[in-house]
Design a binder for these strands. Structure first.
Length: 414
RNA sequence: CGGGCUGUCGUAUACCGGUAGUACGUCUGUUUUGGGAACAGAUAGACUGGGUUCGAUUCCCAGCAGCCCGACCA
């Protein structure tokens, strides 16, 4: 992508109404645009990051046999009445059409996925099943805050698993714990993300959250570094510590943001819809369920919060909008044509490159923009680099670069 | 949802019951070009509605919006 054609621009100042680091940087860099409190549009660069995260999640969900679907955002009121959540779930957006008929905007999809599955599965031979989707969710947060960390409209991956026995569920649940760890590792925050014992909300007594340590976090967790697990403050008591085999003395308190959560639903949602199966003896049983969520935008914002420095964003290679940020310095014809050639070669080599071919900007401005955008590698073409017969490559996280050849560059970032 | 704060160009601010100004940004042009350069020109603003007043951006009321604390949060 030629930066001169990119319609978004960077900003020197942060918007007045944003305090959180993730929103400030993402807006200044032109990744997102704020529409209203807790509602953001994703612009070209931001969408690329979101898609990268989406693909990592999709790959991992597919690995455990997840079947991707896309369920409706509009949800029938009757289904919500069946589970008793029409009036109980205060984050539920209720809308009505011209005839006054009420419906819900999906904040989660148990009320949709269960009736769908009921249509297709009824024998023990059909199990286990796991379906997932990646879709916008709507929740009436009374207080949206922290930029894209807590929105009213946000992209989420939600998976639902269906089982014939508690044992089968638990096997799958354990697998999902590992899958989640893999996802956060691949997204670049594995080293600061802990599986955290937490409240089960309306589902069960306990659940497992995946908490990433960052000062912008809303939750307080207690981490046992050795065992690499944590306990959410909300459930921290002697009983829980004993159950997990944790020593209170060893726990370290941290602020953290919940990037994922997995639940044992048991029959809470299968029962109201009578989702059942017939076992090998011809007996009917209610299906057991689990659900597994990850907020994509929240994960993106968390990465910004956790990894950015005072110059701007620092993207992990796995989710960066581009692999290389190629800068052409100066207006010199030789530099511009050389930079163009390098750009074409990189594109041909299948490398994702953002080419700062803008004219009329000083070197300092281009460097500052590159730092703000946070692309992992910066490749500079200038009179100086040409004299040295190469391209100056620098990591976003490093101070100094080194001059290398085009072939080396391609090898390096591929 | 309870509490608090705030609404003047994109940002930061000034003045003021009587023509809304400055700086930065942004845009155009020229000259520059290895860490946000210089000059010239241009652009753009009183949240909305009511009230008081000869006159309201300013005072009063209501609404709306944004932010912060708390509660809430598969």
């Amino acid at each position: 992508m030629r930066q001169s054609k990119l319609f978004t621009k960077t900003r020197k100042e942060a918007p007045a109404d944003e305090v959180s680091k993730n929103a400030e940087l993402l807006i200044r860099a032109g990744f997102v645009h704020k529409e209203m409190a807790g509602v953001y549009s994703y612009l070209p660069l931001g969408l690329r990051v979101l898609k990268k995260i989406e693909n990592i999640i999709r790959e991992e969900m597919d690995k455990v046999g997840g079947q991707e679907v896309l369920m409706s955002t509009f949800q029938p009121k009757e289904n919500w009445e069946k589970t008793g959540r029409w009036n109980d779930l205060d984050v539920l957006y209720k809308v009505s059409d011209a005839s006054g008929h009420e419906l819900a905007l999906g904040p989660t999809h148990e009320e949709i996925v269960v009736p769908i599955l009921k249509n297709y599965i009824s024998s023990y031979k059909d199990f286990p099943v796991a379906v997932y989707q990646i879709q916008n969710k709507f929740r009436m947060e009374l207080r949206s805050k922290s930029g894209i960390l807590r929105g009213r409209e946000f992209m989420m991956k939600d998976m639902y698993s269906f089982h014939t026995s508690q044992e089968d569920f638990e096997n799958f649940y354990e697998k999902m714990k590992e899958v989640y760890k893999t996802i956060f590792k691949r997204s670049g925050v594995g080293h600061i993300t802990y599986m955290t014992f937490a409240s089960g909300g309306t589902f069960s007594k306990y659940s497992h959250e995946f908490q990433t340590i960052t000062s912008a976090g809303e939750d307080t967790i207690y981490v046992d570094e050795e065992q690499a697990i944590a306990v959410n403050k909300e459930v921290l008591d002697g009983e829980v510590l004993a159950q997990l085999g944790l020593n209170k003395e060893k726990l370290v308190e941290h602020k953290a943001i919940e990037v994922g959560n997995i639940f044992d639903l048991k029959t809470k949602y299968s029962a109201p819809f009578d989702l059942s199966f017939t076992d090998d003896k011809g007996e009917k049983h209610t299906v057991l369920m689990g659900c597994y969520g990850i907020g994509l935008g929240r994960l993106m914002g968390t990465v910004v919060e956790a990894l950015a420095d005072d110059k701007g964003i620092i993207w992990p290679e796995s989710i960066a909008p581009y692999a290389v940020h190629l800068l052409a310095l100066g207006e010199d014809e030789a530099v511009l044509s050389e930079a163009n050639k390098i750009y074409e070669s990189l594109v041909k080599a299948g490398i994702e490159v953002l080419f700062d071919d803008r004219t009329g900007l000083s070197a300092g401005e281009k460097f500052s923009d590159a730092d703000l955008l946070g692309i992992p590698f910066r490749a500079v073409v200038s009179a100086r680099s040409i004299k040295e017969n190469g391209i100056e490559l620098k990591k976003r996280t490093e101070e100094k670069g080194k001059v290398i050849t085009l072939d080396e560059l391609i090898k390096h970032v591929r």
